[in-house]
């Protein structure tokens, strides 16, 4: 008689669906529509995560949204999320004040696994709010800078006013990261680059034969960026992308985030580009 498979070490569904209570201890307005919230757990137990993972944030009475953690995974302190105010729930989160309580489930999903880039060059490519999920990975690499070869960040945003973490970009440069920034449109006073983020790829200093590339941004941007990286010689198996789907349960049960054979909330959000190459270009998947 066949044996039943051993149960895997997942949280019971009941507890996985119950949010923990976190209190807003600080808030920063990053751009006109994007803000970062700093949260402390009411029960005092920190929420451990790995760079690339997300949580489900609840605005009570309004709903839940999946948001990647944007803080440092290895430094004690408040849990950070950088959120763009684009809908009912994120708008409710935007209106929270210090002391307000919200729900947090997770963390969920796969991480960037930056340790896989040890002794090699690491390339980050972020588009718009996509820099936020990359930030924990950037911080991890910079905290262990000597373990990596050249480290490059290519970052594109719609306009100079919509660039995230502007002060930090300068610090990251000082810590040994090549930072290339471009925007879609600039005013006459903007001295930086204007153009697609893919235009930066031929200019960046990295060895494509020995590079781990991590991309986060809108899917079309990730597809074109990955193609440009492959065109420069980076192996598709060494490129990772963070997919964005309509996640609801976060534990692979509801199917809202199904992407053909993948459940993005558990199989992703970070996935090898080689695994999703064919999916990224498909319509209606």
């Amino acid at each position: 008689m066949p044996r039943l498979a051993e149960p895997t070490a997942v949280q019971p569904v009941e507890s996985a669906m119950v949010p923990r209570l976190f209190r807003l201890v600080d808030r920063r307005q990053d751009t006109a529509d994007t803000f970062t919230i700093m949260l402390e757990p009411n029960d005092g137990v920190p929420l451990a995560f790995i760079p690339g993972q997300f949580t489900m944030l609840s605005a009570f009475g309004v709903g839940e949204v999946p948001i990647s953690v944007s803080g440092d995974a290895h430094v004690a302190g408040p849990l950070q999320h950088t959120v763009r105010d684009v809908g009912a729930v994120t708008h409710a989160l935007a209106r929270t004040a210090v002391g307000d309580v919200m729900g947090v489930r997770g963390p969920y999903g796969t991480g960037w696994d930056v340790a896989d880039g040890h002794s090699r060059d690491v390339v980050f490519v972020g588009g718009g709010i996509g820099l936020a999920p990359l930030r924990p990975a950037v911080l991890e690499v910079l905290a262990h800078r000597e373990d990596f070869g050249r480290v490059v960040l290519m970052y594109g945003a719609r306009s100079p006013e919509e660039l995230l973490f502007v002060d930090e970009l300068k610090q990251w440069e000082d810590q040994g990261m090549e930072v290339l920034v471009t925007v879609d449109y600039g005013r006459e006073s903007w001295q930086g680059r204007v153009g697609l983020v893919t235009k930066l790829i031929p200019r960046a200093g990295f060895d494509p034969r020995s590079t781990l590339a991590l991309i986060c941004g809108p899917e079309v941007m990730m597809r074109h960026t990955a193609l440009a990286l492959v065109g420069r010689g980076v192996r598709s198996s060494r490129i990772r992308v963070s997919l964005e789907r309509n996640m609801r349960c976060g534990v692979g049960l509801c199917g809202h985030c199904q992407y053909r054979e993948l459940f993005v909330c558990v199989d992703g959000p970070v996935l090898p580009y080689a695994q999703v190459t064919g999916l990224l270009g498909l319509r209606e998947v």
Partner: peptide, 19 residues
């Protein structure tokens, strides 16, 4: 063409994809 798509989040962005 790419910029016409307003890749980094135009009015079409929703809570389903806030990052």
């Amino acid at each position: 063409q790419m910029r016409l798509l307003d890749l980094y989040g135009g009015p079409g962005a929703t809570d389903a994809s806030p990052r």
